[in-house]
Amino acid sequence: MATLTQPQSAEQLAAVCKTIRRHIINMVGAAKSGHPGGSLSAVELLVSLYFGGQLKHDPKNPEWKDRDRFILSKGHACPVLYAVMAEAGYCPVDKLNTLRQLGSIYQGHPDRRFLPSLEASTGSLGQGLSVALGMGFAARLDKSPSRAYVVLGDGEIQEGQIWEAAMFGAYHKLDNVCAIVDYNKIQLDGWVKDIMGLEPLGDKWRAFGWHVVEFDGHDLAKVDAAFNEARNTKGKPTCLLAHTVKGKGVSFMENNPKWHGVAPNADEIAAALKELA
């Protein structure tokens, strides 16, 4: 499943998405804790990056200076990142089920001390966009083609630092940075609209000076097109508002706030895997 030079076909990408979803269910199930809902909603976004040719990276050379950077700012969704990185060849697939165990490289939130190919340690919300902008600035100074991608949670962007970073990115015209909001409409306590509504969200990012693309975050062709549009947008950074479904792919988890941070039991694992067969 090489990535750098061989973008996968649509059918292959859809199959990878299913594999990733099965890993997520198995990992969180084995750990008996974790965050399945927000991991499942971001699958197509990460698969398009890592397997669809969007992210310029080389698992055999994770230190490659001109690689694109990826930061999962909503660090609690690390099961999707670990599964994608493992399938891409950064780390072992057969250890995914050690998620959250003492000494595991798959820590409860991304921890680059344990998994050095991670670009950032995250988990405290609101900080990944700033780090990505710093990386984007370094790339500009180095005249490197490297781009920085950062996936944000919708609840996460209630953090004030996100908007400090949004101002910074637009003011400095960091068009090599792409923020992706996994807009699944649910946060821990319930629906985003009932806790601290974000709408009109596209207008907010536009008002901050970002190019905005809104699309169905589960439609791989649209995800691919959005990343292309981001790359081709010059003079300003791009924010992709990916409309997604929390728990996507497992019927009983979809659009149910319960599955933000609860692990499936044995019966639920079996039922989920059947749907993802």
Partner: peptide, 22 residues
């Protein structure tokens, strides 16, 4: 890098620059 009056963002921008070798 002029970060404006936004210290939290500035620290994390600095961390991003440092992560990239600066």
């Amino acid at each position: 890098f002029s970060c404006g009056i936004a210290e939290a963002n500035m620290v994390a921008i600095g961390a991003g620059l440092a992560s990239a070798g600066k």
